[in-house]
Amino acid sequence: MLFRRAAGFGWRTLSLSILMIGLMFADLHYRYLNTVRNVLSVALTPLQYALSAPIDALEWLQVSAATQHQLSTENTQLKQQVLLMQVKLQQLINMQEENSQLRALLKSSERITGQFQEAKLLAINLEVNSDEMILDKGAEQGVTVGQIVIDVSGIMGQVISVTPFTSRVLLISDPRSGIPVQDDRSGFQAMILGMGTERPLSLIHVSETADVKVGDLLLTSGLGMRYPEGYPVGVVEEIEKTSGEPFMDIKVRASAQLSQSRRVLLVRHDFSVEQRKRMIEAGLLPYAEKSSGAKL
């Protein structure tokens, strides 16, 4: 027993390490391993749903424990809300028509309208330091990479990978995420970068002369062909000027409730061919996007 220890585990560690490093390299630089990833993720999908089940059960319990009185008051409230929304919608339809006429006069392109699909975030605690979420809709339900995820108050992120029954969303608070935006008040355009979980976003490369004020609403500008135009991203929270620095330090609070929303909408948007052509002519599209459509 005492001398049974095989000397082999050092060699095994070494060979497995080399294998794993090779795997990491292959996964980073080539797309060979997507099938491996897909097979494993399909196998793990039941676990992801199972982990989300307790929270769903709690929500269900909350609903079923509600009294008739509570439900009926909620119902009347909702009916009132629907009425209000419908009135507002009537005005909006009118305005939309007017808007498209004006745009035609100005010879500018039509605004794109998206199709919406409801989805739910699976409650899974992913590793700290990665701002990703998992949705309960996947390729089988028609989700594709590059779709935008919004909640009731603004942009949450974009779909970065899809498996048959789930899909992965990169939140706008992730350091890898960047969104081209424009100031709703002044029309000033800039980029928003994520700065990590639970931290304000950052509006970058804004010089001191730019027309940006605290409280300004920032909307997606539609440049870059990833996020459609006109969705709220955040509100300018704090502007800091450091003498000697070329750019200001601007903090932005995300409009969407990134850590609280569970019911979200997937937006399917198609940029028109004409729009695409114009953007390429203006040099606004990177080369990679010219040949193939929205690609990560």
Partner: peptide, 28 residues
């Protein structure tokens, strides 16, 4: 050690990290 690598790969898939990242850390 091979099984621990496999479990690490499952974690990588769940997390969406590069395949082999957690496997390598667990292995070492």
């Amino acid at each position: 050690l091979s099984w621990i690598c496999f479990i690490g790969l499952c974690i990588d898939v769940m997390n969406g990290s590069v395949l082999g990242l957690h496997a390598l850390a667990l292995l070492w």
